[in-house]
């Protein structure tokens, strides 16, 4: 699904923020990406969701070698990936409904069916009463749920979440994680970048740990309890 071979990355002419990353993410896997602040977690995710290019090494995504994939084929790859951005990145002038419908519209789908599916999804994340609300009128937790709904609405095969539990309390975070687990059961590969050790211990996962731009451990961990 995702394959890195000796990948390095730098911003502009700066130093390498990621070095010699070699890893494989299997279809249907559930991954936590951990590491201290500044270790390069967000940068690694950006490489996967095609916001940045590696400065060296080889990335293979859904079987496509990114170095040789023509630019015009990248949008189709991006549509298979759902991203929950650390800062949500909702579009301010669009309602919650239109924000969540955006990935479908971009893919050329519109109409009544789309609207109903999106409304259904928003109800599922507990925002039935806020379909027409602008992001600015929603609380942080509500915005986060809109962002998550937008990431999953097109049923991506790969879901990337960058600190998706940063803005909510412990119980809220656990509820969100259960949502990801449910998606994972339906076949979506999940990668979650997080700081919260206490949280991830409760879920079975594979752990990718970054330290100073290098991948130090890749371990399979069972949940301590479920």
């Amino acid at each position: 699904m995702v394959r890195f071979d000796n990948v390095g990355m730098r911003y502009g002419a700066g130093r390498e923020v990621l070095r010699d990353i070699t890893m494989r993410l299997a279809p249907g896997g559930f991954y936590f990406l951990t590491g201290p602040s500044g270790a390069g977690k967000s940068s690694l995710l950006k490489l996967i969701y095609l916001a940045e290019r590696p400065s060296r090494g080889l990335i293979t995504l859904f079987g496509h070698d990114l170095a040789t994939t023509p630019r015009r084929e990248l949008p189709a790859l991006r549509r298979k990936i759902g991203v929950v951005f650390q800062d949500f990145r909702l579009i301010p002038h669009l309602s919650a409904l239109d924000n969540v419908a955006l990935p479908l519209r971009v893919a050329g789908l519109r109409g009544e069916r789309v609207r109903n599916n999106v409304a259904e999804l928003l109800r599922w994340v507990g925002l039935a009463d806020h379909l027409d609300a602008r992001p600015a009128t929603l609380s942080g937790g509500q915005q986060q749920r809109v962002a998550i709904a937008r990431a999953v609405v097109s049923r991506p095969s790969l879901l990337l979440a960058d600190e998706p539990t940063g803005n909510v309390d412990e119980r809220g975070a656990e509820r969100l994680l259960r949502l990801f687990v449910e998606l994972n059961r339906q076949g979506t590969t999940i990668v979650i970048a997080t700081h919260s050790e206490s949280l991830i211990r409760r879920f079975p996962h594979t752990r990718l740990h970054l330290e100073g731009g290098e991948l130090t451990t890749t371990m399979q961990l069972q949940a301590e309890y479920q």
Partner: peptide
């Protein structure tokens, strides 16, 4: 720019 970046990252073609 912000909204355009989001559109780009969720798979919008440049022509869109």
């Amino acid at each position: 720019q912000g909204a355009i970046e989001v559109l780009h990252l969720i798979g919008a073609r440049d022509t869109y």
